[in-house]
Design a protein around this nucleic acid. Structure first.
Lengths: 107, 107
DNA sequence: TTGACAGGCAGGTATTTGCCTGCATAAATG
DNA sequence: CATTTATGCAGGCAAATACCTGCCTGTCAA
């Protein structure tokens, strides 16, 4: 599974996006802390966090028996470059393509 | 299912992202045209396009027996506002650019 | 040392997903 | 009208997914 797939897959789940939100509000939380606000078992949250870590959206740091989770925005920046930046330009090409298509059918 | 869920779910699949790419390269294509470049049945492509349409990433227009598919970048703008804008800082952009220079793009 | 706390690991299951085959409908084309 | 062409609809199926229960390991503190 490549980097893009992992990233989009990680973002696809509402629970995972909620975890990212909570880390954005308060970075460096432990697993237990993150569990407090979610209506599911600790094990499920662990699985979500593992996926977020695999996608590089979350970095972890062990401190004693605790595991701190920190947000890493770099992959989101990649999404921007790959999917959003090009749409910021006026979409004149699209209109041109469609126009050419409709005119061609009339001939 | 809310708007965000639909949108991220739509983006989560590589085949659907490929369809978006093909529409970006040449907008307003029919179902049959889009099928030509993908290694799956027409029915599967239809399901993907239905999901893209439900997420509002693709708009359709019927013309006779044909159905033209057009890209709609607005939901992507929403993603930007919701998920990326708050992370945008010069420091991160610089880091991203440096990373690209060092390892090259691999998407 | 012992108990409480933080986290990891290994299945089990119901649902969702992506893809398929088969058949049906509607529009162009001869 | 008959045929091809473009698309729609329904059901089936294997794999992935998200959730769970049960149990184990490691750390801290009284």
């Amino acid at each position: 599974m490549n980097k893009s797939d992992l990233l989009f897959k990680a973002l696809a789940d509402p629970s995972r996006r909620k975890l990212l939100d909570r880390l954005y509000a308060n970075d460096g939380q432990t697993l237990s802390e993150l569990c407090e606000h979610l209506d599911m078992t600790r094990q499920s949250v662990t699985q979500h966090l593992d996926l977020l870590e695999a996608s590089n959206l979350v970095t972890t740091l062990r401190r004693g028996r605790e595991k701190l989770h920190m947000l890493n925005p770099v992959p989101l920046q990649d999404v921007y470059e790959r999917w959003l930046a090009k749409f910021e330009k006026p979409r004149l090409k699209a209109l041109h393509d469609l126009k050419r298509r409709l005119e061609g059918a009339d001939t």
